[in-house]
Simulated assay, not measured.
Amino acid sequence: MATFLFLIPPGAKSQDEKARIIRDRFSWIAFFVPFIWLLWHRAFLAAALVFAIEALGSVLSEHPVFGLAGLGICLATNLLVALEGPTMIVAGLTRAGWRVDAAISANDRATAEEIYYMDITTGEAETRRTVSLPAAETSPRRHAPMLGLVGFKEGR
């Protein structure tokens, strides 16, 4: 089962027909050509950064001593983009004012769309929402320091 994120544009209502659907999964295309994949998804700053890191890795891979390090840098960059690429796209859209309306687990995209838009006809739009955990600052429980370290916002 895959998770599909439904993002709606700024000012749109829930279940808008202009919702953008992003499948949160590993992308083989992003693994093999991360620079082009990021450009295709309009993540220009990330594409420039990946291009610079890949160029550094390819220069290092030609060096007799640092050859494996250069290949490791290129492989790690490709793997990072393949795993976190959809998350980068969602973060970019969120910065642009879009908001995540739903996160639906389904076998394929058609089933996820059916579940998402089904609420329009049944009127159960408020029953289907993602669960969000409370933020640390809103929690009534104080967090103790971990492993003997000073806790967050505790000070000395």
Rank of each mutant, 00 (worst) to 15 (best):
L49H: 09
L45I: 15
G67C: 06
L60C: 07
L49R: 08
L83K: 04
L45C: 08
I73M: 15
V59M: 15
V50L: 01
S58C: 07
G67Q: 10
T77I: 02
A43W: 04
C74G: 14
I89R: 07
F51C: 08
V59Y: 15
L60N: 00
L71D: 04
N78D: 10
L83A: 06
H63C: 01
V65I: 13
L39V: 15
V65K: 03
L68V: 06
I89L: 13
L80Q: 11
V50H: 00
S58W: 15
S61E: 05
I53S: 07
L68W: 12
V50T: 03
A76L: 12
I53H: 00
T77N: 09
F66T: 06
P64V: 06
C74E: 10
G57H: 04
A69T: 08
T87E: 15
L68P: 03
A46F: 03
L79C: 08
L68C: 02
I73E: 09
L71H: 14
E84C: 11
F44Y: 15
G57R: 04
A48L: 15
T87S: 14
L75W: 13
E84M: 14
G85H: 10
W40V: 09
A69W: 12
V65N: 06
L56T: 13
E62K: 09
A52R: 08
L39G: 08
G70W: 06
L80F: 15
E62V: 05
E54A: 10
